[in-house]
Simulated scan of single mutants.
Amino acid sequence: MADLIAIGFDQPTKAFDMRARLAELQTEYLIDMEDVVVVTHEDNGKVKLHQASNLTAAGAVGGTFWGMLIGMLFLNPLPGAAVGAGTGALSGYMTDLGVSDDFMKSVGESLKPGHAAQFVLVRRVTGDKVIERLKDFAGAGHIIQTSLSRTSEEELGALLEETA
């Protein structure tokens, strides 16, 4: 079962920096994330979701490959690739993996303009090592919502809200 962690930031750059650090920790197998998204509330009032992976592009690439392969069977690879790319892109666009986009947008609406939030869906984590590696973000944010245990939430909250 995955845990959801939503963290608010006064500065969007801090949210993007933390996402980069978490991605680095994932390559070291200290954390296994299902999804990580930064949500910004722009100064013009718009809420933007900054997904870590582009499912539309991935779907188009996969669809192109399969469409061309099937098209080769019928001696018509180019139209097969085009149809496959379109179908793959559409299915990638329609796919919503991880945290619900509607939920993230509604939280983003509640942020002040110029602020950001980060949503992380964590499958597995080595908590003590990850907390140690996130010390640079002391005082940078606050917890909006989590599904962590009370002690884990308090530990993360203490890190984020302590004065640097």
Rank of each mutant, 00 (worst) to 15 (best):
H41G: 15
A89H: 00
T151C: 06
K46Q: 13
G88W: 12
G62E: 06
L159S: 05
R150K: 09
V61P: 04
F9G: 11
A140N: 11
Q118I: 12
R21I: 07
L30R: 13
A15Q: 03
G98R: 05
L90A: 12
L22R: 00
G84E: 12
K112S: 14
S152H: 07
S110A: 08
A81W: 05
E132K: 12
G59H: 04
E132N: 09
T87N: 00
E28F: 09
T64L: 13
I7N: 03
R150H: 07
G88K: 09
Q145E: 11
S91D: 01
E161N: 14
V47K: 06
V36P: 02
V120N: 10
G84D: 12
L160D: 06
E155L: 14
A57N: 02
V38P: 03
P113D: 11
T151G: 09
E161P: 07
T95P: 03
D96R: 07
F119A: 11
L148Q: 04
S91L: 15
A60G: 12
Y93C: 00
E28M: 13
P77C: 03
E155Y: 07
L75P: 01
A117N: 00
G8R: 13
W66A: 03
A140Y: 08
I7W: 02
E155A: 11
K46N: 11
R123W: 11
I5L: 10
T27S: 13
P77G: 03
I144D: 00
L73F: 07
T64W: 08
G67R: 11
A158N: 15
K112A: 14
S53T: 11
I131M: 10
L148C: 07
M104I: 02
A6Y: 00
E24W: 08
K48L: 15
M18Q: 00
G108N: 05
M72D: 04
F137W: 05
D3T: 01
A158K: 13
R133K: 12
I70Y: 14
L111F: 12
D10R: 10
Q118D: 04
V120R: 05
E109A: 14
T56E: 15
V38S: 04
T163I: 08
L134Y: 10
G84C: 08
I5T: 06
L73R: 04
L49Q: 13
Y93R: 04
F119E: 06
S100H: 02
N76H: 07
A58S: 01
V122Q: 01
M104P: 03
G8Q: 08
K46T: 15
T40A: 10
L22Y: 02
N76C: 04
S152T: 06
D43G: 14
G98W: 02
P113K: 13
F103E: 06
I143D: 03
E154M: 11
V36G: 03
K129C: 01
A164N: 13
H41M: 15
A82D: 05
N54A: 10
